[in-house]
């Protein structure tokens, strides 16, 4: 292993440790303390919160903003693919993939998907700059988080196609991203799931979720 790989391993350790800290802090603080008499089913509401409630048809933030919604979904898929590959590349050198036609084709397809994902990331980035409504809401962290993630996808795509040339940039950028993740808004990777849990608990307790079908 090279020094930049050790660096990224150290960053990964810091990142995972920090995310675990965030997670266990929530566990330690505990679920909402509720003394009123429960009316609905928390379990059913939680299932609804993580599934149907997330469907585009259920949320104005999705069906009123289709281009942004689709971009966001593709961008997130791209990010998770890159993180998955990051783990894979600790065990398998991307050069090895070239010896197998089917794997080489898969990498090419992933690279093509990442290009689409990068375009989506840039769309979201420029939308944030151009639209005053979102610009006034944005912090430096919002721009930085987007740029880091988009750049990581870009360098992953390069690394898949030109492993020898891109390897050092790939691991350095991965390290920066991993170190930044727990301190910036990217930590929503932890808090998103916690927020869905909280909503399921709140609405489930009061029998508001899942919504009743009207006869």
């Amino acid at each position: 292993m090279w020094w930049y790989q050790y660096l990224s391993l150290a960053a990964l350790f810091v990142c995972i440790s920090a995310c675990i800290w965030h997670f266990f802090r929530l566990i330690r603080l505990g679920k909402p303390k509720e003394l009123s008499e429960k009316s609905g089913s928390i379990m059913r509401a939680e299932v609804y919160s993580y599934t149907t409630a997330m469907l585009p048809a259920q949320k104005e933030s999705a069906y009123l903003h289709i281009p942004t919604y689709v971009s966001g979904i593709l961008f997130h898929i791209g990010t998770f693919i890159c993180l998955f590959l990051f783990f894979v590349f600790f065990f398998v050198d991307p050069l090895v993939f070239r010896d197998w036609l089917i794997l080489a084709m898969a990498l090419l397809l992933i690279s093509l998907f990442l290009i689409i994902s990068i375009v989506c990331g840039l769309f979201l980035f420029f939308k944030r700059i151009v639209l005053k409504k979102i610009r006034t809401l944005s912090t430096l962290d919002d721009y930085l988080s987007n740029l880091l993630t988009t750049s990581f996808q870009l360098v992953t795509a390069f690394y898949l196609i030109f492993p020898e040339e891109a390897v050092i940039y790939y691991y350095i950028l991965a390290s920066i991203l991993l170190l930044y993740l727990p301190v910036g808004k990217l930590r929503h990777v932890v808090y998103f799931f916690a927020a869905r849990y909280q909503l399921g608990f709140f609405y489930g307790w009061r029998n508001s979720w899942p919504p009743k079908k009207q006869k």
Partner: peptide
Amino acid sequence: THLNACVHCG
């Protein structure tokens, strides 16, 4: 949870 979850998507 809720203070850390907003991503400013607007």
